[in-house]
């Protein structure tokens, strides 16, 4: 059974048809990429999946259950975690605290427990802290744990966001342009990281403009253009696809 399944998903903003009848499935253990020119609707598609807003039409199934129209926090607690294209860390919180928020849906202490600081709360809090530190270590930024997250360098902020998303122990991770703004070393590091977490059993759906990264690591690629899916195939076949090449060459001409 597919882990994530989109069927005829549409999203309209007023007159703009940002996502137009997109269907595809993500199998467990896959790394799947969504590519397409700027404004193709990739982020909008992610937002429809993660519940930032509901799709205008169509359905999204996660683990066989419909999730379209659910609140984002409910979707998150079912095991879907994400990063943002334009990094969204919490200002005023340290890097560690940012990652600790990632463990929110894996912990339980409520208002009373927090106020009274019961022994169970104390233990849970320690567990949250330790696990969060582990994820910072995995990302190689454990030494930055106590720095204010939004004051870090760009690449480090991306790493914190990555760690935050992982701390939720998702079954499906949505990454929106994880390598944007990173240098080639950092990009290689991201590629390595994505395959590592896939090997740990986390399914990955990512949006990325860096073609070599996408071609290297993904098992399958979906191509969007003007909101529509125009191709879905293995990296090898996508590279041969004339329609895809036309779009990308066309875009390159316009961009350069």
């Amino acid at each position: 059974m597919a882990l994530l399944e989109l069927t005829h998903v549409h999203k309209r903003f007023g007159g703009l048809h940002a996502v137009n009848d997109v269907s595809f499935a993500v199998q467990p253990g896959q790394i799947k990429a969504v590519i397409g020119p700027n404004g193709a609707g990739k982020t909008t598609l992610f937002n429809c999946i993660a519940g930032t807003f509901p799709p205008s039409e169509g359905s999204v199934h996660f683990n066989g259950q419909p999730i379209e129209g659910l609140e984002p926090h409910r979707i998150a607690s079912r095991g879907l975690s994400r990063t943002f294209q334009n990094i969204k860390l919490y200002p005023g919180l340290t890097a560690l605290e940012n990652v600790m928020i990632g463990r929110h849906c894996r912990s339980r202490a409520g208002f009373w427990a927090g106020m009274l600081r019961l022994p169970s709360t104390f233990r849970e809090e320690r567990e949250i802290r330790e696990r969060s530190l582990e994820y910072l270590e995995l990302l190689g930024i454990a030494d930055l744990a106590d720095s204010e997250a939004t004051s870090l360098a760009f690449g480090q902020q991306r790493a914190v966001e990555f760690a935050r998303a992982l701390a939720a122990e998702p079954t499906l991770l949505l990454l929106d342009e994880p390598a944007a703004g990173l240098n080639i070393y950092e990009t290689a590091e991201v590629a390595r990281l994505i395959t590592t977490i896939r090997d740990r059993g986390i399914t990955v759906l990512l949006v990325e403009h860096d073609m070599s990264l996408v071609m290297d690591i993904s098992d399958e690629i979906v191509v969007l253009s003007f909101g529509q899916k125009i191709a879905e195939d293995t990296p090898h076949n996508i590279q041969q696809n004339t329609e895809v090449i036309r779009i990308y060459l066309g875009e390159d001409d316009a961009a350069d």
């Binding site: 609140e71 926090h73 919490y90 200002p91 927090g114 106020m115 939720a168």
Partner: peptide
């Protein structure tokens, strides 16, 4: 004690970025 607990952290996160807090499972 509350503001240094899981809930307090979530509250501060809401203040910082509501969208990101919701995406991390915080029932804002």
């Amino acid at each position: 004690q509350l503001i240094h607990s899981r809930i307090g952290r979530a509250l501060r996160a809401i203040h910082g970025s509501e969208e990101a807090a919701r995406a991390m499972g915080v029932d804002t």
